[in-house]
């Protein structure tokens, strides 16, 4: 049965996908090589994803320890950390939330911040979408397929997005041992990341308990983490003007606005400057989002130059 589904999957390959799919043309893998290569089932692709993700999960674990320590320092209990890491599962936004974590919590500002920081996931999801739609559509029960896809979407993060794009590319080159089941691979690698992120957050909070932050300069750890994350996001000269705008607006906003609104002011102002300014040379306009934004054709682990593979748990130690 599984085999049948896989064969069907191959048949339903998104030929040409959404227009110019660049180096990731899925027809490459499912055409000439697809017929002869041994076909793997979805379960095997889940395991393959998890296996490929082990080194990345280890670095996410270190990063999660830091998160747990800082979360405890911000006054979050174990239950709250479990809820945050288990349900939000997006490092950068969770870190930023710690800086805003003063009761009564600014719920609207927190949600707006999470939306802004995680909007990059829209681009990442869109870039794997043709393959995921394919695996969902070929499942025997369409409803079950959709359910699985919604589950896999929950596990989408910077790291396993990059791994999955890499696997798809190896698949397209006929080096992955058959056509890659993107949804299964994403779920397998994402599941491992989820476990690493959740467990390390809890461990970090326990390890960091009882430490007086200010006495050890740990109050600066927030700032240090954000600065380090920012260097991981630096893409070159094109970022200079937006980042300077963001910094100036934030400094002004912090002086004249209540609460933490300066973060959104600077973030939105800087990014709008990036949008309104001249685009990087050689960049075609009006691309289909289905096309991998920038970094995708460079394979797994490579950091996209284009903002798709950024922030969060992943900017470091790849």
């Amino acid at each position: 049965m599984r085999r049948t589904a896989d064969e069907e999957r191959r048949g339903n390959a998104p030929r040409g996908g959404n227009g110019p799919t660049g180096g990731n043309d899925p027809t490459g893998g499912n055409g000439p090589t697809g017929g002869t290569a041994p076909t793997r089932g979805a379960r095997e692709w889940v395991l393959a994803g998890a296996r490929d993700c082990v080194p990345v999960a280890l670095s996410v674990f270190t990063y999660g320890l830091v998160y747990g320590l800082l979360a405890a320092q911000a006054g979050m209990g174990l239950g709250e950390i479990a809820l945050a890491s288990g349900l939000i599962f997006a490092g950068a936004s969770q870190f930023v939330a710690l800086d805003m974590w003063t009761h009564p919590l600014p719920v609207v500002a927190l949600a707006a911040m999470a939306l802004a920081v995680n909007l990059r996931l829209v681009l990442m999801g869109a870039s794997v979408q043709p393959w995921v739609a394919q695996s969902a559509g070929s499942a025997r029960s369409a409803r079950f397929g959709a359910l699985k896809a919604y589950g896999a979407a929950f596990l989408l993060a910077d790291e396993n997005w990059a791994l999955t794009m890499g696997a798809l590319q190896r698949g397209a080159a006929g080096k992955a041992g058959g056509p890659v089941d993107a949804m299964a691979y994403l779920a397998g690698s994402g599941g491992l990341l989820w476990l690493a992120w959740l467990s390390s957050g809890l461990a970090g909070s326990v390890l960091g308990a009882g430490v007086d932050p200010a006495a050890w300069g740990l109050d600066f750890a927030f700032t240090a983490v954000f600065l380090a994350l920012a260097t991981g996001l630096w893409r070159g000269r094109a970022d200079l003007v937006p980042w300077v705008c963001a910094a100036l607006l934030a400094v002004l906003g912090e002086r004249f606005l209540p609460g933490k609104w300066y973060i959104l002011l600077g973030g939105l102002g800087g990014s709008l400057a990036a949008a309104l300014g001249p685009g990087p040379a050689g960049r075609a306009s009006g691309k289909a989002l289905g096309q991998a934004p920038g970094g995708a054709s460079r394979g797994g682990g490579a950091t996209g130059s284009d903002g798709s593979d950024r922030g969060g748990e992943g900017g470091h130690e790849r």
């Binding site: 950068a92 930023v96 911040m113 802004a116 920081v117 909007l119 990059r120 829209v122 681009l123 954000f226 600065l227 994350l229 920012a230 996001l233 630096w234 893409r235 970022d239 937006p242 980042w243 705008c245 963001a246 973060i263 959104l264 600077g266 973030g267 939105l268 102002g269 800087g270 990014s271 990036a274 949008a275 934004p293 920038g294 284009d306 903002g307 798709s308 950024r310 922030g311």
Partner: peptide, 9 residues
């Protein structure tokens, strides 16, 4: 969209 996370940080 792609400039947003960096600017937020």
């Amino acid at each position: 969209l792609s400039a947003l996370p960096g600017c937020m940080l």
